[in-house]
Design a protein around this nucleic acid. Structure first.
Lengths: 349, 349
DNA sequence: TAAATCCCGTATAACGTTATACTTGCAAAC
DNA sequence: GTTTGCAAGTATAACGTTATACGGGATTTA
């Protein structure tokens, strides 16, 4: 019932705790083979394993790193969290997941709590809104690797590393793909573009329309609750709303780009419920190549990068920054690849 | 850069560490108002917050509990993990998530590591296969709350609590629903029924067929990799395989019950890809009412219980067992409710 | 005036571990 | 026959915190 400590082992083996400690740490030249064997046996019999808490108090080191996501039931963040979890474990770290719920206070509470546990590094796929708090953390030597923003977006904050896809290029390539198929009226479905990465995706769309000599931008923006994003908890009415708004606002549209794959999946469902055929009547394409994209009917054409590689890079950034906190901010921007699936085709005449 | 401790505060305020500790713990009767104010100010200025590591070493207590899932990118486990995470936080616990990957060694490593951190309680939605290890843990006073099995399944192991839906009733109700709509040939799609809960679902199906005077059982069993379940990482070929096998093995079938909603979603996609209309040609129903069920086209009729309530019950079990480890095993079995959606209808004549 | 009681604190051990430095006893070297 | 060296350990402080017990000065009580 109660913890077996090094003291119990020492007493059982008839040696001092120092000797047991030496044994535990492989300093065998301090010990006679006979003594080694005795200690080994006692440890096995008692089932002793050292307290990491005491170790950490002594050493000040912990393998824990924080892994902050807005909500693991958002498929995009679940995919990413899984990749990050696995990469962090590979690197010998112990990831501790926190659901921030897109709430600055919750996120801060999570970070502060882990810091009290001695954690010095965090990876976040959640947009950390509180710039002042972040600056404070960085000043205190806390390391961050952030997803889905650019170094320029956090201009003032040195000492943070960033991993992202090229957001403007993603939507730009989406337009190119649709234009090449012959689409002329291409709409863009988004939730309010409040963050830098969303603005970039919108910009990419607008620029590519112009470059291809197409229609004016056709933007549909649908607002969700304050602290929720589409996909955090299913689609909850989004599907129909998006589909209706599209058909009403921009009749004659033959293709839609979703700002992320969740909203694309949403409007896909909404359109089909209204009897619109995808892709025969309307082609759909999404940014973020989440696993769900290939589970739908039709499967969804997407633009995405290798999450495993991105996760590995984020972990590597964190590892090196923990070792050398003062190096300047770094970033890796991944080129989004087009994965053509069933949801895009030539427009019907 | 380096940790602010209670010593720093004490020195800054010109008092002993004892006084700062008294302040921190609200024992104000030991302190003069003037001293209180001085300490308060120093703490604020230095940004002191106590080391939970030291606290835990002293007290032996930790709010951490382990949350073991097979894979967070399986939508069923993601839904459950989110609910458990939130309920645990509500109860003042700090859930630490571990992806066991359906691998006994990984699961054991996760549990052992957390035990070394002083964790005394775990919730698992993953089937813990190593009965000997479990028994050892229980003997050492580790508390477990497990999902999706019955107390009788772990007969020998006292001291474990269990939360589940009534699996036999779920499939039985599925058959009743389909029979009431007029279906006579109802197939059952499953992955190999290796665990007790899956056997129960199969049994419920078989029994209900007989009770309704219907066809002999039509069981389609599709094997996935050793350590993966359908849905752990998308559908990966399952969809087509399942659909083809159904049409080949049991032509004339008008309805399919999936052993869980992931396989139902899979065969739904597979059938549609083959040009079969759901529900016009074939009705589909799934056990586990995951959020994804209502994001598909058509939306999937499901049997499920309130995950929030189940999660809260599991957390409550864990809390009380941590307080009183020797109480006998408890279980709550939830009655699955039928949620009728678009994927079931009367059979075509 | 002596004793008891408050008020406002402080010293110390303990939690489980490791690193540093110290102690033996014995053999080899000079 | 003293010194040196080595093998095989052990004692102790420290990590950051709190609980327990212990002051001492001022005030009240008898």
């Amino acid at each position: 019932m109660q913890r077996i400590t090094i003291q119990h082992v020492a007493k059982a083996a008839g040696v001092s705790v120092s000797s047991v400690s030496h044994y535990q740490n492989g300093r065998y030249h301090h010990l006679r083979p006979e003594t080694i064997e005795r200690i080994r046996k006692c440890i096995a019999e008692l089932g002793y394993s050292p307290s990491r808490v005491a170790l950490q108090l002594k050493s000040g080191q912990t393998p824990m790193v924080g892994l902050l996501v807005p909500s693991i039931d958002n498929p995009y963040h679940a995919d990413l969290a899984l990749a990050l979890d696995q990469e962090a474990l590979k690197a010998g770290l112990r990831p501790v997941l926190g659901n921030g719920q897109r709430d600055a206070a919750r996120e801060k509470a999570f970070i502060d709590e882990l810091i009290e546990y001695g954690v010095r590094g965090f990876i976040s796929t959640s947009e950390l809104r509180d710039a002042a708090a972040m600056s404070e953390y960085v000043k205190r030597g806390i390391a961050f690797a952030l997803f889905d923003l650019r170094l320029v977006d956090i201009g003032g904050l040195n000492g943070i590393d960033v991993v992202s896809i090229n957001n403007a290029l993603a939507t730009s390539r989406a337009v190119d793909h649709l234009a090449a198929l012959g689409h002329r009226r291409i709409a863009f479905l988004t939730t309010p573009p409040s963050s830098a990465n969303r603005t970039a995706r919108l910009d990419g769309y607008v620029a590519a329309l112009e470059r291809n000599g197409l229609s004016d931008p056709l933007v549909i923006s649908i607002k969700d609750d304050e602290n929720t994003e589409i996909g955090d908890s299913g689609l909850a009415g989004f599907a129909e709303k998006a589909a209706e708004k599209l058909l009403e606002s921009y009749p004659g549209t033959t293709a839609v780009i979703g700002i992320n794959s969740i909203v694309t999946i949403g409007i896909c469902a909404g359109l089909q419920q209204l009897g619109v055929k995808v892709p025969k009547d309307i082609s759909l394409i999404g940014v973020d190549n989440i696993k769900l994209s290939s589970m739908m009917v039709p499967t969804i054409t997407s633009l995405g990068a290798d999450y495993g590689a991105m996760a590995a890079q984020a972990v590597e950034y964190l590892r090196t920054r923990l070792a050398a906190p003062s190096i300047p901010g770094r970033e890796t921007i991944y080129v989004p690849e087009l994965i053509v699936r069933q949801s895009t085709t030539v427009p019907s005449p």
